[in-house]
């Protein structure tokens, strides 16, 4: 019988990305136990963890890709969707909740017209909730990128967004 290629499972990835991931994995000695550290570094570099990147990580660490996916979907820090240019995070810790974080969140949802975990069509903003950032004295707290906004009210949402309009 004639030899034919039936390797129907192919994962396409850019060469420079492949090299980067291999580099990261190697820096952790390609140990399966370092999976979470590797994912942290990989997400730090790529911004998110799409399927093909998880495939490469799986192969490099010799872990089943299903297991890698199982880990990625377990931890809320990991995301398979790209974040916006200005990721907005609303703290929904208890102190912020007690001081009305939910109303602030609703206002962001309304103004951006996206749900939590989504990114605006223009890729500019993404919206996420996070648990206590340890700034309870400033509750309710909103983060845009690394910048912290304290004592945010629903009325203040527009002002925050305006800051990034021209950027």
């Amino acid at each position: 019988m004639e030899e034919k290629s039936m390797s129907d499972i192919k994962v396409k990835v850019k060469e420079k990305d492949l090299i980067k991931i291999q580099e990261i994995c190697k820096s952790f000695d390609n140990k399966p136990g370092e999976l979470i550290n590797v994912l942290h570094k990989t997400q730090e570099h790529f911004g998110y963890l799409p399927a093909e990147i998880q495939e490469v990580v799986a192969q490099e660490l010799d872990v089943a890709v299903a297991k890698v996916y199982g880990v990625v979907t377990f931890y809320s820090f990991f995301t398979m969707l790209p974040k916006g240019k200005f990721p907005i995070s609303i703290c929904t810790g208890t102190a912020c909740y007690v001081r009305g974080a939910d109303n602030v969140l609703q206002e962001f949802k309304r103004q951006l017209n996206i749900e939590v975990g989504e990114t605006t069509d223009d890729g500019k903003y993404s919206l996420n909730c996070l648990r206590c950032v340890g700034a309870c004295g400033l509750a309710p707290v909103v983060l845009v990128g690394d910048k912290t906004y304290g004592r945010v009210s629903p009325e203040g949402v527009k002002e925050i967004l305006e800051e990034y309009q021209e950027k």
Binding site: K4, S5, M6, S7, D8, K12, V13, L18, E55, Q59
Partner: peptide, 9 residues
């Protein structure tokens, strides 16, 4: 046949 998962550039 080779059916391993292949990473391709």
């Amino acid at each position: 046949f080779d059916k391993s998962r292949k990473i391709e550039i």
